[in-house]
Design a protein around this nucleic acid. Structure first.
Lengths: 149, 149
DNA sequence: AAAGATTGAATTATCAATCTTG
DNA sequence: CAAGATTGATAATTCAATCTTT
């Protein structure tokens, strides 16, 4: 199994993916550095493409996508932070910026007056759809290079 | 082949690693999200461990390690930036901090008076060796989980 | 007191402009 | 003018402290 499979919260989906890995020699360092290189390269390409097209960075995409997938297109602040893997405080500020751009709005939580929902707006949904092809192009290219179907 | 193999600049080494990947269905999005999750999780664990032990962050390790591997334990600023995958400007500041900590020193380049070398100091080498086991523990754990030798 | 979320101060990263040398 | 590297202004991230509600 490849590193990424184990940590996947998405491998359960209908789209089954099976990674088989054989390492002839157990050089963990080289394996890990290869992994880091792949990540930096692909993420860098995606960020460059988005910037080129005048679109927001990857972090915004992650937030918008998480909201898009959620029931009623809304998540608690805490849940957003968990999805995006960012500190709570960083999330507050990031959501501030995305909200200022009109891509999401905050709403109170009926049952719990401490909390706040982040809710995807129609504008946010529209932008998400504009970002997707740019994002997907690079991901697909990266995966084709390694021999995917 | 796994994503990471293709992008590896290290796969040429004596420690041959062969990743074979088969995806039964071509769900690139799920594959990619698995990859992102793996990266965020493992890097987060390493950073947490380093902080716990009172050691510098991963970025410092990357710089020190690159210098350690280089001939005469030195690299041009540009070369360091390439190894670590960071902007030139960010590299200047990062090297400033590491230099202030005494872990490396700048030296002029004989042939090219524009340039500067970053040279690993003995203190830097010593710290690198203290960071290594903390770093390696997590990497090894991550790779064992996916069935490596 | 603990959980959810925000704010202020300090660190770190990014963008454009600058300076020196080739 | 292009390459190597740094600097200044700006934006984003992190840490600790705060505020409200449970």
């Amino acid at each position: 199994m490849c590193i990424s499979t184990y940590y996947s919260a998405y491998a359960h989906s209908a789209a089954t993916l099976i990674f088989m890995t054989a390492r002839l020699k157990g050089d963990d360092l080289a394996t890990w550095r290869a992994f880091l290189n792949a990540h930096a390269t692909i993420v860098g390409q995606i960020e460059a493409d988005l910037h080129q097209e005048g679109l927001p960075p990857l972090a915004w995409y992650d937030v918008l996508w998480a909201l898009h997938e959620a029931p009623d297109r809304r998540l608690r602040m805490r849940e957003v932070a968990d999805h995006v893997v960012l500190t709570r405080t960083g999330m507050t500020r990031l959501v501030d910026r995305i909200e200022a751009a009109g891509l999401l709005r905050r709403e109170p939580v009926p049952d719990d007056r401490r909390g706040a929902f982040a809710v995807l707006t129609d504008e946010g949904d529209a932008l998400l759809r504009r970002m997707w092809p740019v994002y997907a192009r690079r991901v697909r290219a990266a995966l084709e290079r390694v021999g995917g179907t």
